[in-house]
Simulated scan of single mutants.
Amino acid sequence: MYSKTLTLFLLLLSSSQACSATFAQQYRRYKYQTAGAGGDYRLTFKQAKGHFEEGDGQTLKADRIIRLLNKENKAKKLELQQEKTIRQVLIDAAFLLLITILLVYLNFRNKQKANLLLDKKNRQLDILNEQLMAGNRTKAKLLGIISHDLRSPVSQLFTFMRLQQNRPGLLTEACKNQYHQELLLSSANLLATMDDLLLWSKSQMDHFTLYNEDVDISHLLTELTRLLQAEAKDKNIILEIEKPDYQFVNSDYNLLFTILRNLLQNAVKHAFPETVILIRANVNALQQPYISIINRGEMIPEERIQKLINEVDINSKSSGYGLLIVKDLSAMIGAEFNICSTLEGTTTQVVFS
């Protein structure tokens, strides 16, 4: 646009210059003619007027060109203004689009955070539900233990006392002494079972903490065999403690004693009469200390062992809950509980990590 305006301006300028040059040329010619004729060298009024009218025509022509240029300039300015307006609108639209995308992204992030928080809350609720279900299972175990393990000794005591009340002369002194010994043994087992239940119920609480200490293995095994010596003597079973490979193990004494007492009770209960039960404290190939109890009895099938450990097969003829207590307490002290049964006997083992 500016080059075209410059061209028109140069054209106007050249026209003005040509008009001036023509006027000067005519003036000189008439001056020479008049001077040669001996007259006045000035132009006549009529000739001067003609030249001025010719100049006015050129001026009008220049004015028309200027007006045309002004119109074109206005049109160009309007076009530039429109382009500027369109550019500004596009910039504003792009800015609004950017803000919209940013808002959509922020909204997506907020929803994502809300979903993550909701998932976290749902997981926490799932954990609480699992804990509640575990608590319900614990109650069911506890009721099963109480109804089965405590019924037998209490029933024996009740039967003996009722017999003494209704028919006091029926039993001889020897029979009475024998029943007294059996009731004393049953009462001791009942007390031990109640201690197990109390300790196990405490271990199921949320804020239960272990009291780990260096446990003297020799002292522990001696106390264990002393407690069950009378029960083993009734079946002429010998409880033999082999020399330990280590002297101390870091664990909770009460839990460890409860575990081993349950295992030894089961070993005495299922061992053949007049056999030997071996109690060993050795170190395996991985340098892990362990305590094992080996008895001679009927072979337990592997499927039956898995059912007993995993709470699948609990019936009214056997106290399967003892192994469940052993399994739970072993996990609490960080030990691994294993059972292996062959034709030569059954071995229960507690391996310390």
Score class of each variant (00 low, 15 high):
residue 30 Y to L: 14
residue 344 E to A: 10
residue 116 L to V: 03
residue 273 P to L: 04
residue 47 Q to L: 07
residue 12 L to W: 05
residue 228 L to Q: 03
residue 36 G to W: 02
residue 30 Y to E: 12
residue 141 K to G: 02
residue 292 S to F: 03
residue 299 M to K: 09
residue 233 K to I: 03
residue 36 G to N: 06
residue 346 T to L: 05
residue 64 R to F: 05
residue 305 I to W: 01
residue 231 E to I: 08
residue 308 L to A: 09
residue 98 L to I: 10
residue 57 G to F: 14
residue 78 L to Q: 15
residue 280 R to A: 10
residue 49 K to E: 10
residue 105 Y to K: 03
residue 328 D to S: 05
residue 62 A to C: 07
residue 77 K to I: 04
residue 218 S to W: 08
residue 259 I to W: 01
residue 233 K to Y: 09
residue 20 S to T: 15
residue 337 F to R: 06
residue 4 K to S: 11
residue 266 N to P: 04
residue 352 F to Q: 02
residue 7 T to V: 11
residue 90 L to I: 10
residue 133 M to H: 11
residue 290 Y to S: 01
residue 118 L to E: 12
residue 247 Q to I: 05
residue 14 S to R: 13
residue 84 K to W: 06
residue 196 D to L: 02
residue 245 D to R: 07
residue 38 G to L: 12
residue 223 E to Y: 08
residue 26 Q to L: 15
residue 222 T to S: 05
residue 187 S to N: 12
residue 58 Q to I: 04
residue 94 A to M: 03
residue 168 P to M: 06
residue 18 A to S: 12
residue 166 N to H: 02
residue 94 A to E: 06
residue 332 M to N: 00
residue 318 S to I: 11
residue 48 A to M: 12
residue 108 F to R: 14
residue 242 E to D: 07
residue 10 L to K: 08
residue 271 A to Q: 00
residue 43 L to A: 11
residue 329 L to Q: 02
residue 329 L to A: 00
residue 307 K to F: 05
residue 206 D to W: 06
residue 38 G to H: 11
residue 103 L to T: 07
residue 77 K to C: 01
residue 251 S to R: 01
residue 157 L to H: 00
residue 270 H to G: 08
residue 17 Q to E: 04
residue 266 N to F: 09
residue 206 D to H: 08
residue 172 T to D: 02
residue 185 L to V: 01
residue 74 K to W: 02
residue 103 L to D: 03
residue 52 F to A: 03
residue 88 Q to K: 04
residue 126 D to I: 00
residue 217 I to N: 06
residue 319 S to H: 14
residue 271 A to E: 03
residue 74 K to Q: 08
residue 268 V to W: 01
residue 351 V to I: 15
residue 66 I to W: 04
residue 207 H to N: 15
residue 5 T to Q: 08
residue 166 N to R: 00
residue 250 N to E: 04
residue 316 S to I: 14
residue 148 H to W: 00
residue 337 F to A: 08
residue 124 Q to C: 07
residue 203 S to Q: 01
residue 110 N to A: 07
residue 242 E to I: 00
residue 190 L to G: 10
residue 313 D to T: 05
residue 34 T to F: 08
residue 326 V to W: 07
residue 63 D to S: 08
residue 7 T to I: 08
residue 159 T to K: 01
residue 30 Y to P: 02
residue 43 L to C: 06
residue 90 L to M: 10
residue 147 S to R: 02
residue 110 N to T: 14
residue 109 R to K: 13
residue 230 A to H: 09
residue 27 Y to I: 09
residue 170 L to S: 11
residue 296 R to A: 07
residue 72 E to L: 04
residue 87 R to C: 07
residue 320 G to Q: 00
residue 253 Y to C: 08
residue 316 S to T: 14
residue 270 H to A: 00
residue 191 L to M: 11
